[in-house]
Computed example of a mutant assay.
Amino acid sequence: MTAQPSPTPAITDDALSLSRIVIPLLRGVIYQADNPNGWTLLRRHQSRVRDHMAVMGLELVIDEAEGYAHLRQLDLDDVDIPRLVPRHRLSFRVSLLLALLRKRLAEFDASSSDPRLVLTREQIAELLRVHLPQGTNEVRLTAEVDSLIGKVEALGFLRRIIGQEHTYEVRRILKAYVDAQWLAELDERLREYLATLEPDDAAAGATTSPGAPDREDRTDG
């Protein structure tokens, strides 16, 4: 006899509603402005979502003021649970750009009621330029800025504006990953970074080579 295929299990409307929240969360950040229907569902079912995520060792974080929600890996020292949220190792230069963007976002919020901070590549380059030795080669700076922007965009902290060349929105989830302490330590970290430059490079304003001893930070994202 030929084995009969197992019947497809029916999914209830209630389970479907939960799936419409859980799946986007597992993929990344839910923004109220980008996904208003998902945001409404999340707020309605947040208790169930928290319980569901806790089974997988994840914590649901909702920032009502900033309008985003994301998952954070629970730190359970006494329990061995495989990680679902990847941990990224970041070079110091990527961390520096994240901190500069976070600082710029704080300044923007203090002076504007607009919820979206939009920066051009030139503006991002200027943020970095003032923190590099004088005389940094412009061609090398532009190439490095493009590389750093690509990495930060891949991490989900920048979003390219469609129809506007080299223009990016700073995503507010950045506030959850670069805290006040990191910003307070920025100047000291920058001095440590500049100290890794060879004297000739510092005088010429060259950036470190890929093999230079960059600081490394970690972030869940």
Rank of each mutant, 00 (worst) to 15 (best):
P5Q: 07
S6V: 03
S6G: 12
P7H: 02
T8E: 13
A10E: 14
T12Y: 09
D13E: 14
D13A: 11
S17Y: 12
S17R: 13
L18Y: 11
S19K: 13
R20G: 06
R20D: 15
I23D: 15
P24G: 03
G28S: 10
I30K: 03
Y31S: 07
A33K: 00
A33Q: 02
H45Y: 15
R48G: 09
R50E: 12
D51S: 00
H52T: 06
M53W: 12
L58E: 01
L60V: 03
L60W: 13
V61W: 09
D63N: 08
D63W: 00
A69G: 04
H70C: 04
Q73H: 12
D77Q: 10
D78M: 02
D78C: 03
V79M: 12
V79R: 09
V79S: 08
I81W: 12
I81P: 10
R83I: 04
R87K: 13
H88E: 13
H88Y: 08
R89P: 15
R93T: 11
V94H: 07
L97A: 04
A99Q: 06
L101A: 01
L101E: 02
R102T: 00
R104F: 11
E107H: 06
E107V: 01
D109E: 13
L119I: 00
Q123F: 14
L127W: 03
R129T: 05
P133E: 07
G135A: 06
A143P: 05
A143H: 04
E144Q: 15
S147H: 08
G150I: 02
E153P: 03
A154L: 15
G156M: 15
F157S: 02
R159I: 06
I161D: 15
I161W: 04
G163S: 07
G163Q: 08
H166C: 01
Y168H: 08
Y168P: 08
E169G: 00
E169Y: 02
V170E: 10
W182D: 12
W182Q: 14
R189Q: 10
R189E: 13
Y193E: 14
L194P: 04
A195S: 10
A195W: 01
T196P: 03
D201K: 02
A203D: 11
A204D: 02
A204F: 02
G205A: 02
G205R: 05
G205M: 01
A206T: 00
T207H: 07
T208K: 13
S209D: 08
P210C: 05
R215M: 12
D217S: 04
